[in-house]
Write a protein that binds this DNA or RNA. Structure first.
Lengths: 209, 209
DNA sequence: ATGGCATCTGGACGGTGCTCAGATATGAAA
DNA sequence: TTTCATATCTGAGCACCGTCCAGATGCCAT
């Protein structure tokens, strides 16, 4: 109302059902978990018929892609913020911790995000190619810390290694088996830092080996 | 027929429907992918009614757990074989490569295995606690290579880091974006070795930092 | 031979993704 | 302003799903 986007492809009956559906999906996801996220439930939540979404998304997976897309944007923003709050080599660890914390705080959304990735055979543009994507942010940080941008293979390997660390930890950090260890190390953050420190790329200059 | 297990909890009508259902599920999984793996389809494949499986599994997820269980056993065996074919520090890399190759060669099964893990809040016994499980094999190998078994926190951190590397790579190695890099490095195996080498734990003595 | 019981079937219920004909609202053309 | 093509939405329907239940079926111990 206060800020109507006048030049957009105008909404017809509902207002902006596409937007409403994505929001409804995120609401459902947070409240009921990923298994409750059916297309019909989303339509119900948005107050439309079960067939309405098909005028805005080709099928269910396209809706989930849209939800995932926003998730990657949010994650990217949180990582950028974490990076700007750290200095030097600590920036890499800060990125990793932000990544894992996002997954911990939005487990259902993170699952949808990665399920969408798994269904493709390539990392989508959101993640891999865009300049402010999570993947590029890691790579750029490696460069800022001394990695040689000309040594493309080396740089890419280091980025992959870092990404594996983040994603692996995101899926493992919550397991109850590690609760005592977290306790012993003085909390979740210390635990994450400690694991990242075990990865060479976080503790040695990335171009040094 | 040739080798009937006589002392087992005797099969009644079908012979051994539980076994047959698991086999049918694995067959379907390989042929049609994870999305085709419905309980009804499994029953159909095994030649029984849709309700029959409920006398052997509480629900669908329990069947999938059984399939996943066998998957972890197979993976453990392949890792053990890979380890025995390597010497010294190369054993760790061999374990990692065996892990990733298993995931590449059995993508649908690997997905079922990890989906089953994700639905729990702890790593199941198959993976984490049993002596010949994948997780313990990594930990034991770290010990054999000089990690101090008494420094429990340190040892567990290193194991977690290695596990994250393996799992992360298992999910990323297939992305098309990395095809040129694999090419440049001289094949998939070289690529995997190179990524593992970027992880400190694979290249430095695990107790050294 | 009989009875008990694990096993399996057929049918049913509510839910799902998706399609399609038809109703409805809209912005643009006449 | 009236008309009209078109985007949007609905309701009904299809095939499939996971799960449950009453009852039929076959095995085993008695």
């Amino acid at each position: 109302m206060s800020e109507a986007k006048s030049a957009e492809p105008r909404p017809y009956h509902h207002g902006d059902l596409r937007r409403a559906l994505i929001d409804a999906a995120r609401r459902l996801l947070e409240a009921e978990g990923p298994s409750a996220l059916s297309l019909r439930a989303v339509a119900r939540e948005a107050g439309v018929s079960p067939a309405a979404p098909y005028h805005h998304f080709k099928d269910k997976s396209e809706l989930l892609d849209a939800v995932a897309h926003e998730g990657w944007e949010t994650l990217g923003a949180q990582m950028a913020e974490a990076k700007s709050g750290a200095e030097g080599r600590a920036q890499l660890t800060a990125l990793g911790i932000a990544y894992v914390c996002f997954a911990r705080d939005n487990p259902a959304l993170y699952r949808v995000m990665y399920d969408a990735v798994r269904d493709k055979e390539a990392l989508p543009e959101d993640i891999h190619d865009k300049d402010d994507s999570a993947y590029c942010m890691v790579r750029d940080t490696l460069i800022e810390q001394g990695a040689d941008p000309a040594a493309e293979a080396h740089l890419e390997l280091a980025t992959i290694a870092a990404w594996c660390a983040g994603h692996g930890l995101a899926e493992m950090a919550g397991f109850t088996q590690f609760a005592p260890l977290k306790e012993a190390l003085g909390g979740e953050r210390r635990f994450l830092e400690a694991v990242f420190e075990h990865m060479g790329l976080f503790q040695h200059p990335p171009g040094a080996c």
